[in-house]
Design a protein around this nucleic acid. Structure first.
Lengths: 112, 112
DNA sequence: TTGATACTGTTCCATAAGGCTAAGTATCAT
DNA sequence: ATGATACTTAGCCTTATGGAACAGTATCAA
């Protein structure tokens, strides 16, 4: 609950860059290698890798290496934290300040 | 549509700090002066003001001065941009890559 | 008109972010 | 065994962030 805040720091920070948001968007279509992900960007690989590391650090993606290829996968559940924070805000300004704990501490369930 | 991205940069960046998220949370309960907002934080006023400026720059709050007091108000519609981006992501990984324009360019309507 | 209040403006500082190049390692293909 | 591929590591550079102190301005209250 204290670390909820620092997690949000990392998540929002990671999403505050267009390159990283684009990577998240791409990974939404399915896993991809670092090379594939980097291709669309006019940027040296080491620079691009920093973005990958930051996304992984924020928990927004997972990566694993097979041979010389590192494959990245999106971690959808982490975006739920953003969703949770938004719900929290909405709850506040709608006057429903109760039930906040639910948004904050548990992963949001498929809201269908 | 190009500036949609740089707007998101600013919004996510602004939300990537716990002080600023706390201010957003507080303003969700109603307008407040800079002094009131700053009170809970162990921070010099000029430092705190930087956060206010950043939030205003991102369009997340509006401020106006009456006499010597500057009052801040939340701009709920700006958080809708975050909501829109999230919807976009969800649309992508659910395979519905059509209709993206709608999420991107127009304010989301109350999704009741 | 004096003093307190509520910011503002300016400058400084340390660290982090985002980019680069150059060189290194580990696989895979031949 | 060699060369190409796919990252990695290590520095370096510039700008942005988040904090501080200190002095300044504009109100409001007495």
């Amino acid at each position: 609950m204290e670390q909820y805040q620092s997690q949000l720091d990392g998540i929002f920070q990671a999403l505050a860059d267009p390159t990283r948001r684009a990577v998240v968007g791409r990974l939404g279509r399915g896993p991809a290698s670092v090379g594939e992900l980097a291709a669309p960007f006019d940027m040296a690989l080491p620079s691009f890798m920093k973005h990958i590391h930051m996304l992984e650090g924020a928990g927004l993606i997972r990566t694993s290496k097979a041979g010389r290829v590192r494959t990245c996968t999106i971690e959808q559940t982490r975006l739920a934290a953003v969703d949770g924070w938004l719900s929290e805000q909405r709850a506040i300004w709608e006057g429903r300040t109760d039930r906040l704990e639910q948004f904050v501490t548990q992963d949001k369930e498929p809201k269908k």
